[in-house]
């Protein structure tokens, strides 16, 4: 093969890492809003809750395609091993997202069956989230690999740990969704969002604590990564920051701040994301293949990088603008007639 001057792997790691995190945060909060939708008191509240994400949810979901195709393009070996290993969670997630997506459209065109589409929206959001949590848990646990292929069974991904991360993600996305609703609503509905946000927050903190204990017990390499000298000193800011943030988030859910719960939730996700990255680095197929081993050929990565570096900033600027235009509280009179 040809010798290349530039190593594209770190660039693609950053792009893909950013893309996946963007998806988790942004589709995370609108899936979370969908989960909370099921608990919303009354029709008017439900309309408001759905309105708050109506203009932006589809843009958020498109990042799932970019994430999937990006993994396929930049780290195809990881794609070829991980995706079949989580065959059923992926299937369930896709079908749930289909239902949830069309529920947005059809709820207003098909008033006769509004309750059906309401359920499709809420359960679709919850099931998709749970399935993503299972993918996360299975990913952290690692996969049975033979050569360049997944060699386990399609049900291997369902373990106590992955079920736990599935439930944990329900609380996590719920917290993001509640933060978003605090930002976008006011009055009684905002109080309702804060109340549910507090429950989700407790779930998230328990989940972070349990995963932080469970993973080093499960994999010796993770314990070594965190608890050997000098790593323990370098990495200690991660848990310390998490604790400080948790305190701040709890306070902001209880006082009158409007933006802080959403920001705090996102920062908690960032720290958890960094924590998982530290545990697994430099693996992309955990405990088997590194980023470099799973990377596509330099020619492939270069060919795609040209267009990505051009298109991605434009997409991001436009997305930012669309959030700016839709800033402010949602109101009952808006939309949906």
């Amino acid at each position: 093969m040809t010798q290349t001057v530039i190593d594209f792997v770190p660039i693609w790691m950053l792009i893909l890492g950013f893309g996946v995190f963007y998806y988790v945060l942004f589709d995370g909060f609108d899936l979370g809003v969908g989960i909370l939708y099921g608990f919303a008191p009354g029709l008017e509240a439900r309309n408001l809750v759905m309105n708050s994400i109506a203009p932006i949810w589809d843009g958020n979901e498109t990042w799932l395609v970019l994430g999937g195709v990006g993994l396929f393009a930049a780290f195809p070996l990881a794609f070829a091993i991980i995706i079949p290993a989580v065959y059923f969670p992926i299937l369930v997630m896709l079908l749930a997202l289909v239902f949830r997506g069309v529920a947005f459209e059809f709820r207003y065109r098909d008033v006769a069956h509004m309750t059906f589409w309401d359920h499709a929206f809420c359960y679709g959001s919850a099931i998709a989230t749970f399935a993503q949590g299972i993918v996360l848990g299975a990913f952290i646990q690692g996969f049975e690999v033979d050569g360049r292929q997944f060699s386990g069974g399609s049900l291997d991904c369902f373990t106590p740990f992955s079920i736990f991360t599935g439930v944990a993600l329900l609380f996590g996305y719920g917290l993001l969704g509640a933060g978003w609703l605090v930002l976008k609503t006011q009055g009684a509905l905002q109080d309702w969002a804060r109340r549910h946000g507090r429950w989700c927050f407790i779930g998230v903190i328990v989940a972070i604590a349990v995963v932080s204990v469970w993973t080093p017990l499960m994999r010796a390499e993770i314990a070594r990564r965190w608890f050997t000298w000098p790593n323990i000193a370098f990495l200690s800011p991660v848990p310390i920051l998490t604790l400080l943030l948790a305190y701040w988030e709890w306070r902001s859910l209880n006082n009158r701040s409007e933006v802080a719960p959403f920001i705090g939730g996102m920062c908690l996700f960032l720290l958890a994301y960094i924590g998982i990255a530290i545990s697994l680095w430099p693996m992309i197929v955990p405990y088997r293949f590194t980023l470099w081993e799973a990377a596509s050929s330099p020619s492939t990565q270069a060919f795609l990088l040209v267009g990505t570096l051009f298109l991605l900033p434009i997409i991001l600027m436009y997305t930012g603008w669309s959030y700016w235009v839709f800033r402010g509280k949602v109101r009952a009179e808006l939309g949906y007639h």
């Binding site: 759905m50 994400i53 109506a54 203009p55 932006i56 949810w57 589809d58 997506g101 947005f104 459209e105 059809f106 709820r107 207003y108 065109r109 603008w321 669309s322 235009v325 839709f326 939309g335 949906y336 007639h337």
Partner: peptide, 9 residues
């Protein structure tokens, strides 16, 4: 606008 799907800023 009846839904969010193609709904844009």
């Amino acid at each position: 606008i009846e839904s969010g799907r193609p709904d844009r800023p």
